Amino acid sequence: MRRQLPQILRRGTALLHQQCWLWGCDIRRSEGNLLRAYGFARQADPEGKRSTQYTLGLEDGSIVRLWGSGLYFGDQEEGVFLNRFAFEPRLVRFTQDWQDPARLKEAPRYLDFQRLSAACAWVGAYEAWTLLQLGKAYRRVCLSSGPDPAQEAEGIAAGWRQLAKDLAAFC
Rank of each mutant, 00 (worst) to 15 (best):
R2P: 00
P6I: 06
R10D: 15
G12L: 06
T13L: 08
A14T: 07
L15V: 02
L16D: 04
L16A: 01
H17E: 12
Q18K: 09
W21T: 10
L22H: 00
C25S: 13
C25R: 12
D26A: 15
I27F: 07
R29P: 03
R29Q: 13
R29L: 15
G32S: 03
A37P: 00
Y38K: 14
A41W: 07
R42H: 03
D45N: 11
D45E: 12
G48L: 10
G48D: 14
K49I: 14
K49E: 14
R50H: 15
R50D: 14
S51L: 02
S51F: 10
T52F: 02
Q53M: 13
Y54I: 04
T55K: 03
G57K: 08
L58D: 03
G61I: 04
G61A: 04
S62Q: 10
S62T: 09
I63F: 00
I63Y: 02
V64H: 05
R65Q: 06
G70R: 07
G70F: 05
L71V: 11
L71F: 07
Y72E: 04
F73A: 02
D75G: 13
V80P: 02
V80R: 01
F81G: 02
F81W: 14
R84S: 12
F87N: 04
F87Y: 12
P89K: 13
L91S: 11
V92L: 01
F94Y: 15
T95R: 13
D97T: 06
D97Q: 09
D100N: 15
A102W: 11
R103M: 09
L104S: 09
L104V: 04
K105N: 10
E106M: 09
Y110I: 07
D112E: 12
D112Y: 13
Q114Y: 11
R115C: 01
L116Q: 06
S117Y: 06
W122T: 09
W122V: 02
W122P: 05
V123T: 06
G124V: 05
A125H: 10
Y126V: 10
A128F: 00
A128E: 14
W129Q: 12
W129V: 08
T130I: 15
T130F: 12
L131G: 08
L132D: 12
Y138L: 10
R139F: 12
R140W: 06
C142A: 13
L143R: 02
G146N: 09
G146C: 04
G146L: 04
D148I: 00
D148F: 01
P149N: 07
Q151G: 01
Q151K: 05
E152N: 04
A153P: 05
A153F: 08
E154C: 00
G155S: 11
G155I: 04
A157Y: 00
A158I: 05
G159K: 06
Q162H: 09
L163D: 01
A164G: 06
K165T: 12
K165C: 05
K165D: 10
D166Q: 11
D166F: 01
D166S: 09
C171L: 14
